[in-house]
């Protein structure tokens, strides 16, 4: 069957329970779910099954926040080499301040409105923080030269 003939896609999400997470019983759960959906509508097909353990999830959250920190360090090293370590250090403080503003606003919005914080949100947050820090860095090095 051609892929365009499928009209509706659904994601069924299970919370982390023991029978869902263990590799022995997870296929049984999938079978039961498909069997249950077959009673409603016979032509159902599972296209993808992903299992995420809480440990891996925590590691993903940690890894995603490394990029902005690396950018801060790289910018500091660049300025320290180009303008001397005093300028590099003082502008690193500015970088951290810019990053704190963006991360604070972003996380506050997500918490206040209880939006779903997914991998895409994490990436967007990192990108935004890096962009703003870069723009602030360009502005700061212009001011310090004049």
């Amino acid at each position: 069957m051609d892929i365009n003939e499928y009209r509706s896609y659904f994601f069924i999400i299970f919370p982390p329970r023991d029978d869902v997470l263990s590799p022995q019983s997870a296929p049984d759960v999938v079978q039961q779910v498909i069997a249950a959906l077959r009673t409603e509508q016979s032509r159902v097909e599972a296209t993808r099954v992903d299992i995420v353990t809480p440990k891996v999830g925590g590691e993903v959250l940690l890894l995603g926040s490394v990029a902005p920190i690396l950018v801060c360090v790289a910018l500091m090293i660049y300025r320290a080499v180009r303008y001397g370590w005093r300028v590099g250090l003082s502008l690193a403080v500015t970088n951290i301040r810019n990053m704190v503003i963006i991360l604070g606003l972003f996380l506050s919005a997500y918490v206040a409105f209880q939006w779903e914080f997914s991998l895409i949100s994490l990436t967007a947050m990192g990108c935004l923080a890096i962009l703003v820090t870069g723009a602030g860095g360009v502005y700061a090095s212009r001011v310090s030269r004049s």
Binding site: Y9, V52, W115, F117
Partner: peptide, 27 residues
């Protein structure tokens, strides 16, 4: 805010199972 309410994390972080299913009809 993080201390009081906490982030609304999705399955990618909290762990769990995601099953993607598809139907030929609109449902």
């Amino acid at each position: 805010l993080l201390a009081v309410r906490g982030l609304n994390l999705t399955v990618e972080f909290t762990g769990g199972m995601i099953i993607q299913v598809r139907y030929p009809e609109a449902l």
